[in-house]
Simulated assay, not measured.
Amino acid sequence: MTSITDLRKKAIEIRKGLLQMICDGQTGHTGGALSSADILTALFYYKMKHDPANPKWEDRDRFILSKGHSVEGYYNILADMGYFPKEELKTFSHFQSRLIGHPSTKVPGVEMNTGALGHGLPIAVGMALAGKRDQKDYHVYVLMGDGEQAEGSVWEGAMAAANYQLDHLVGIVDRNHLQISGDTEDVMALGDFAAKWRAFGWEVVEIDGNDMEQIVKTLDELPAGTGKPQMIIAHTVKGKGVSFMENVAKWHHGVPTPEQLAQALAELDACEKELD
């Protein structure tokens, strides 16, 4: 799937699917799943090397969802690509379902159990270092939240990645400015966020993380062979695509009512028609 229009339509489809899944499961982290849907769509349908028929393919690119609470879009994409049956999405967070509220390696296509914030980047550093020492050319992508940046282990991982010159490691931060307790700048200010990552020895680019064309262009233009890990600061909108959820902190974790679900799906349908 290479058309920007097709990728935009797919991201809308994933948004609709994750909203339905959250309603079926009566739990979920709606806002962050919506804000990161475009990034995940670009990675899985456009950029990454992976094979649903062979999830453990040795030369696959690796992806870690460090902000594991926003798993709903991730599960929808894996099901849509054939890693497991789509019907299973209806069991999200139900008793004995393997589709729990954070990524689980019981689910085909999931590389690591995540959810304890701050762990994804250090794990990705280990995977990237292993690939470098084994002389493999796969990339490791890790998606973090901006609230997660308050975790010290993120910066330990950042320092190690630069030290080992892991230029096939790509970090992405879903910079939507909202976490469960409010605005990130009120909870733990990030300040000049790009300058922090550059100071730790990373190549840094800032983009609109809800603009599919920008995402794809950035992924294609990441510099190779620099000896530096790559950081994409993706400025997004929490709750992107649903008017009454956008930039509203309470939708960090929340379940739409049937009426709200109907309104949200109608808005997304309208967005999809505009692309036809």
Rank of each mutant, 00 (worst) to 15 (best):
M1H: 14
T2F: 10
S3M: 06
S3W: 06
D6W: 12
L7E: 11
L7M: 12
K10D: 09
I14E: 06
R15M: 02
R15C: 04
Q20D: 01
D24H: 14
T30R: 11
G31P: 15
G32H: 10
D38K: 14
A42M: 03
Y46K: 13
K47V: 01
K47G: 11
M48S: 10
H50K: 05
R60M: 01
R60S: 03
D61Y: 07
L65Q: 06
S66I: 01
K67I: 02
S70K: 00
G73M: 01
G73C: 06
Y75K: 02
A79L: 03
Y83N: 04
F84C: 05
P85T: 04
P85S: 06
E87F: 07
E88K: 14
F95M: 15
Q96C: 12
L99T: 01
I100T: 14
I100C: 11
I100H: 07
G101F: 09
G101L: 13
H102Q: 07
K106H: 15
V110C: 03
E111Q: 09
E111A: 00
E111D: 14
N113D: 10
G115T: 10
L117K: 00
L121H: 14
I123N: 13
I123Q: 09
V125P: 04
V125N: 03
G126N: 05
M127Y: 15
M127N: 01
A130D: 06
A130K: 04
Q135C: 04
D137C: 01
V140E: 08
Y141N: 03
L143I: 01
M144V: 06
E148F: 14
E148S: 08
V154L: 11
W155K: 04
E156R: 07
E156K: 05
G157W: 06
G157C: 07
A160M: 14
G171A: 15
N176Q: 04
Q179N: 11
S181T: 14
M188I: 12
G191H: 11
F200M: 08
W202V: 05
V205I: 10
E213T: 05
Q214W: 00
D220H: 07
E221P: 02
E221R: 09
L222A: 11
L222H: 07
A224P: 01
G225A: 09
K228Q: 14
P229H: 06
I232C: 03
K238Q: 13
E246K: 13
K250Q: 14
H252K: 05
H253G: 13
P258L: 11
E259N: 10
Q260T: 05
L261Y: 13
Q263S: 13
Q263P: 00
A264Y: 10
E267N: 11
L268F: 03
L268W: 03
E274L: 13
